[in-house]
């Protein structure tokens, strides 16, 4: 019976993580779209919502610690609990990046956005997709899928380089664009970091499934 209770607790823990990740997925896209449309209200909401994400992470962490202390989990169960804790931490950081983009939107005011902002949205959408698929791999305990998602980070990096070039070109054609381009560069950097964090999540999933803690090189091929 105690086994049953523990398994139920693990399921609930996994659910907490999933709810948190779905929120972060939504925030990533919402923050980029708000930036594109200079939607300050939405950005303000996102900045305030960051506190919820922090609270969600603390809740997850406490649940994990409670489970370790009371159930003395072994092997796979222990890996699951530590993986959830680490992934929760990464999600919390990713949401901080989303918040960073929201702050940049507030700084930019209502001036018309440069066209590169469309690529920023594409970047956020890619990151969201990666995160969704990463969590699919987590649910299915599928290491191969986690590898594939990790490899997709290269697309985000490519978009990042593209945005940098476009913004530089925008500055060269009109010096007045410098301030905005500089800030958008930061926003893009935030999203690029978010992509890296999703890569970390994938590494953690591989650890959960195989028990091997490895650092995946970028553009790795599944074995």
């Amino acid at each position: 019976m105690t086994r049953g209770v523990f398994e139920h607790q693990l399921e609930k823990l996994q659910e907490l993580l999933l709810i948190m990740s779905s929120q972060v997925e939504g925030n990533l896209v919402a923050t980029a779209v708000a930036l594109q449309h200079a939607d300050h209200t939405r950005s303000q909401e996102l900045i305030e919502a960051d506190a919820h994400m922090n609270a969600a992470y603390i809740h997850i962490e406490q649940t994990c610690l409670g489970l370790i202390a009371t159930q003395q989990p072994k092997a796979r169960d222990l890996r699951l609990i530590t993986a959830v804790m680490t992934i929760g931490g990464e999600l919390e950081r990713i949401n901080d990046y989303a918040k960073g983009v929201a702050k940049i939107n507030l700084h930019l005011g209502h001036e018309p956005r440069l066209t590169a902002v469309a690529d920023l949205c594409a970047m956020a959408e890619k990151a969201r997709l990666m995160l969704t698929q990463g969590m699919n791999a987590f649910l299915a305990r599928d290491a191969a899928q986690a590898y594939a998602v990790h490899a997709a980070d290269a697309e985000i990096d490519a978009l990042y380089t593209q945005i940098q070039q476009d913004l530089l070109a925008a500055i060269l054609t009109n010096v007045q664009h410098t301030t905005q381009a500089n800030k958008l560069m930061w926003a893009a950097h935030n999203l690029e970091r978010a992509g890296d964090r999703i890569g970390n999540i994938c590494e953690r999933i591989v650890f959960l499934v195989t028990g091997e803690l490895i650092e995946l090189p970028t553009a790795v091929r599944p074995p």
């Binding site: 399921e11 609930k12 996994q14 659910e15 999933l18 709810i19 779905s22 929120q23 997925e25 939504g26 925030n27 969704t132 969590m135 649910l139 299915a140």
Partner: peptide
């Protein structure tokens, strides 16, 4: 197979749907 007997969040996945459910 993936949905039955599992937490509903794993089936809904989308944050707005999960939010509505919560």
């Amino acid at each position: 197979k993936k949905a039955l007997g599992r937490p509903i969040a794993e089936t809904l996945r989308h944050h707005q749907l999960i939010g509505l459910w919560q």
